[in-house]
């Protein structure tokens, strides 16, 4: 390799690195707000992988276009290219570098995973140090433990129970900056508990109770969606999540506890009722949605 080539290659590499870094930074804007401690860890990891990925993608694409532009055969040129069959050194390099790269990505992913403390259901509930670790990165200091909330899913409704206060609701309320402990249950089929703004997701297996935790850090309204296909009204199985200050949360709980249970609106049930009334319904027979739930609180 002569000097000129090294300089060109170096310049291209630098340029690609710059573009990749920029796209990596841009990737933060592709997500919903970072409403949980997990989301911050998540977006950092995603940004890193986006940067690496952009570099590889641009590198390969550039190589292809370089050859398309400079090595196209003329129309009547029937000659062959140089009969190069391989290059052991190159092949070793392009085996070793990806290998090291994926090992590095696996290690970093594992660390993030560990910090997020996303437990699988068969693991022991929690290890306090790890909770702190997830927290440390957010710059927050107080971690208080919160009572458990039971999440009941069925075709096609979410019901949240606060057993200590004897409150049921179709809206999930959570105090900000506290580790939320949920017990996920399903009455019928597999559902998925998914709040995009929190970057967390867990399948809910019927006949099992799955412990799930995460830490909301930003007050606001978010969406909870069913993420594991559950039949006809799957797309309508959503709920609102409200993250609020401890004081607001306590007030809400008190108020809700005093209300007598009423019928909550339920999209699946009402769509189904409408469909049954129309005799010209175009659809096929479906599993009948569970009746709209009776809860102390609904929006």
């Amino acid at each position: 390799m002569n000097i000129k080539r090294i300089i060109t290659l170096g310049a291209i590499t630098l340029f690609l690195a710059g573009v990749s870094f920029w796209i990596g930074q841009l990737s933060y804007s592709w997500f919903p707000p970072q409403a949980s401690a997990e989301a911050i860890l998540y977006d950092d990891l995603f940004s890193l992988l986006t940067g690496i990925g952009t570099f590889i993608f641009l590198g390969v694409t550039l190589a292809v276009f370089y050859n398309i532009i400079f090595y196209q055969a003329g129309r009547y040129n029937t000659s062959d290219g140089p009969p190069i069959e391989g290059n052991i050194k190159l092949e070793i390099i392009w085996t070793a570098i990806p290998l090291l790269l994926v090992i590095a990505i696996a290690v970093i992913s594992y660390q993030t995973y560990d910090q997020m403390d996303l437990h699988g259901p068969t693991e022991i509930a929690h290890l306090p140090q790890m909770m702190d670790a997830a927290y440390a990165d957010t710059g927050q200091s107080t971690v208080e433990s919160m009572t458990e909330i039971e999440v009941d899913s069925q075709q096609w409704a979410w019901i949240f129970r606060y057993p200590d206060q004897n409150v049921t609701s179709t809206e999930l309320h959570l105090p900000v900056n506290q580790r939320a402990h949920l017990k996920l249950r399903s009455k019928d089929v597999i559902h998925g508990f998914y709040i995009p703004a929190f970057r967390v997701k867990q399948d809910i297996i019927p006949a099992k109770t799955i412990d799930f935790e995460f830490t909301p850090i930003l007050e606001g309204n978010y969406r909870l969606r069913d993420s594991q296909y559950s039949g006809t009204y799957f797309a309508a199985m959503q709920a609102d999540v409200v993250v609020e200050s401890q004081a607001d949360y306590d007030r809400w709980l008190k108020k809700a506890a005093k209300q007598i249970p009423t019928l909550a609106p339920n999209q699946a049930a009402s769509e189904y009722a409408r469909r049954e009334q129309k005799s010209d319904s175009a659809g096929w027979k479906t599993v009948v949605p569970a009746p709209a739930p009776m809860v102390n609180y609904h929006p």
Partner: peptide, 18 residues
């Protein structure tokens, strides 16, 4: 490249089934 991202457990947790 998106495949490598998905094989990373924490990444997959958010985008799985999306």
């Amino acid at each position: 490249i998106t495949g490598i991202m998905l094989s990373s457990v924490p990444i997959d947790i958010h985008v799985n089934n999306t």
